[in-house]
Design a binder for these strands. Structure first.
Lengths: 111, 111
DNA sequence: CTGATACTTAAGTAAACGATTAAGTGTACA
DNA sequence: TGTACACTTAATCGTTTACTTAAGTATCAG
């Protein structure tokens, strides 16, 4: 269940244009045009990237008049961060166990 | 430059099979067959996923005799985690500034 | 030497991606 | 009213992905 959410989130983060959009939105809301302005691509391309970001939950938007305002939602970002952190912790935990183990056998691996 | 590295890392993390492989490797080294065993796909498919993981630097492997042993490298993971953390921090920093601002204008937005 | 094991390589395929251009919709404003 | 603006939709196109099967290579065990 959470698997698919991580799929969408990491996939959304795997593109430099989409990360640039998130970097912009982390500094505050922006319209679609404002998001598109620094990017070297057509507006429809930007909108497609935006759809990927919205599908992942990283970004939400609402339209008022003729301008759509986008804002970042850090919750999806935290989910991804937590997954990474858990893997890193598990890796470190294993190193600790390994160290404790080696202390008992000062002159080489027991097995 | 670091952009391409994040591309590769997030792309590597965007697939459930590859995340499963990393989860396995966070608990210790494993052979290709061991990585493949819980996955519902052919061995060549697993090897292709492994190539993606190695290209991102998340995993390294070496062959001894006929068995290739894979181990996780947490450095690439940290790089991704740092990018996420920076975005979250910037978002939070902006919330703080916004709060300070609103304190000066208790009855609505100044602009 | 023979056979089993552990990959490895190659080739092919269906679907997803990332972009484009062209045309359309709905606001805002003079 | 009419024109510029801010998207929006649709159709298309070349590339990359995520597999597959089939066949090949290199150990190791007896």
């Amino acid at each position: 269940m959470a698997v698919a959410a991580l799929d969408l989130t990491f996939h959304a983060l795997a593109d430099p244009a989409r990360r640039a959009m998130i970097e912009r939105l982390s500094r505050g809301p922006a319209s679609v045009s404002e998001l598109a302005q620094p990017l070297a691509m057509s507006l429809p391309a930007v909108v497609q990237h935006l759809a990927v970001l919205e599908a992942s939950g990283l970004v939400a938007s609402q339209k008022v008049g003729r301008v759509r305002t986008c804002r970042m939602d850090p919750a999806a970002l935290s989910l991804a961060e937590q997954w990474i952190d858990q893997r890193r912790r598990e890796w470190e935990r294993r190193l600790c166990r390994l160290g404790e183990h080696l202390k008992q056998f000062p002159d080489g691996e027991p097995t």
